[in-house]
Design a protein around this nucleic acid. Structure first.
Lengths: 332, 332
DNA sequence: CAACATTTGGCAATCGCTTGCCATTCAATC
DNA sequence: GATTGAATGGCAAGCGATTGCCAAATGTTG
């Protein structure tokens, strides 16, 4: 079950007839050792199948070659793109990638950070549920990069829902809708408030009224209550906090025999897998989530290396856009 | 950016007026130290906010409290359930969870195992692409648990596609279908051959003819070629290797104006998110994927602890079942 | 009360690697 | 040919824990 014993740097040293320190240097700091010796050591290491122990290395040097990504809900398809992008970039950089679920809880998130802090070089926080000040405080102690959450002074990548939200309103306005209802996600969610803000502002510019209902759990299950609330509010255009919720809304609407987009129009966010599968196919805001995940890891990597010379931490903003499908139509 | 210095076991020792070894024991092996001393030490540790460094612990004790899960394709929704189940169980057990993508490549999978081996206590291999003998060989050196792949003598959890496959055939037979076509996934895939075997055997029992086409890439994109091939083979019942492929087939069929289930019936496997969203809603085999992920981690944990006394490594088989939706109907 | 067993705490080695510092060698310079 | 300095390799001290072994203290028993 367990290997007898792995070859260590000492085995290589003995075999090569040099000191362990020389082996270490030959491998990590090649210019510090004579080319001839180096080649010899490298050859021996190769022959013995030597692999440095990441733990021992980390313990001594502090460089763990590992990052962790914290996600509120692993299950949520919304995060898949982001996770994938982050994993890819990490793997390209030779970093080990730890994934952890925070169960939508700020406390849990904080605990995970604390727990993993010794094991990783930094964290990617996706749609963090932490309060701004907490985040900033943690950032003083740990290496953080945010995804889809902006905190001034902290590096991160966001998909800008502003552009998408504006496009939603323009689209709805051009279809003759006079008012929209935003079916909100968790109030603590930065994304939710950002979407709502952009929506409201754009609506105002177009002389539309905008109302916010909720919060609703951002899952398919939440759709029932959301749809009913929206109907009670006599809205003609429903913008759901995300596709999951939108799909739930669609279901409920179908159940209640309300034609979509005949009587009401429904829009979602995220363009998750399945958004184009449902009936009617969902009009939704798509964004480069994978790119965002990748960018966040990128920032984390850069931050670590340049440290001193680095000016202000960078924020990457990626535009989103509306994908028009069949769930939106002319206002009645 | 980086903390000044974390409190170590020595800090606690000094503050508590005992030796470091006593602190270590007070924390990990409480009965080894006098209750009074222990309480005092624990209190001091608490007060100083002491957290053991997992790396130092691992280096010394060999216990890493970390497992890694290797997945052929992080993107594939099929794995989400498994990943989630594994992550949950790991987190419950206080284990750090490393997720890595193997990009459908056996070599890559092997490399990842090698690379991570020093950092983890064991691996969960989901739908491993490794050859049987390679797997067994690796299992001698590393702690492995398999998901949705069976290798004799190795612990693992599989969703039994046998039961689901039989139900497919029964369902199709009762609808009057006389022949089925299996649109196969990757030939190296254990799942694919398992499904095909069960399908063929069941078909035989029902006096139906079964043919296998493919392999096709098990993605939505693969559906075009798969559908066309099936049509060319004049089949009335198509069983796709998974839902992704099935959805792709559905699309292609719609494109070509072939009514489903009017002219052909389509069945998938996995019951992924979205399977009930597409039109027609997909008849598919659902299995407790999340449970499988959880079980695999469970086996890994047990294996580690009982080691000696353990009899044969355990294999968990979880039954699947057919979920009948709208993509299957009477044979023409 | 002596003799022995059990508790309890400390010392020091160890896990595998990195790195500051020193000693040696050898080439370059005056 | 003496002096200086760069290049090179080794020694040994950590990094932060765990743990075998020993010694002192305490308890138990006849």
């Amino acid at each position: 079950m367990n290997s007898p014993r792995r070859t260590t740097i000492y085995d290589v040293a003995r075999e090569a007839g040099v000191a362990a320190s020389t082996v270490s240097r030959a491998l990590n700091n090649p210019r510090r050792v004579n080319p001839v010796t180096r080649d010899h050591v490298v050859a021996v290491a190769e022959r013995l199948g030597y692999r440095p122990d990441p733990l021992a290395t980390a313990l001594q040097s502090g460089h763990k070659a590992t990052i962790a990504m914290l996600v509120p809900d692993i299950t949520n398809p919304h995060f898949f793109g982001t996770i994938r992008g982050a994993e890819k970039r990490a793997s390209e950089a030779g970093l080990t990638f730890i994934l952890a679920n925070t169960e939508e809880s700020a406390d849990n998130e904080r605990n995970q950070i604390e727990r993993l802090s010794r094991s990783v070089d930094g964290f990617v926080l996706a749609a963090s549920r932490l309060r701004e000040d907490t985040t900033r405080e943690l950032a003083r102690e740990y290496n953080l990069a945010l995804v889809n959450r902006q905190v001034e002074g902290l590096p991160g990548a966001v998909v800008d829902n502003g552009s998408g939200s504006r496009q939603i309103i323009e689209h709805l306005a051009s279809l003759g809708h006079r008012s929209v209802v935003y079916l909100s996600g968790p109030h603590r969610s930065w994304t939710a408030s950002q979407r709502w803000r952009a929506l409201r502002a754009a609506a105002e510019r177009h002389g539309m009224t905008a109302r916010r209902l909720g919060p609703f759990p951002p899952k398919v299950d939440g759709g029932g209550a959301a749809a009913d609330a929206a109907l009670a509010a006599e809205a003609t255009a429903l913008v759901a906090h995300n596709d999951l919720l939108a799909i739930g809304v669609l279901r409920r609407l179908t159940e209640r025999g309300i034609p979509v987009p005949g009587r009401v129009s429904v829009v979602g966010y995220d363009d998750i897998f399945g958004a184009d599968l449902c009936v009617p196919a969902l009009t939704t805001v798509a964004g480069p989530q994978e790119e965002a995940g990748r960018a966040a890891v990128e920032l984390l990597i850069r931050k670590g290396s340049l440290s001193r010379s680095q000016p202000a931490p960078q924020q990457v903003v990626l535009p989103s856009h509306l994908v028009i499908r069949d769930s939106t139509g002319p206002a009645v």
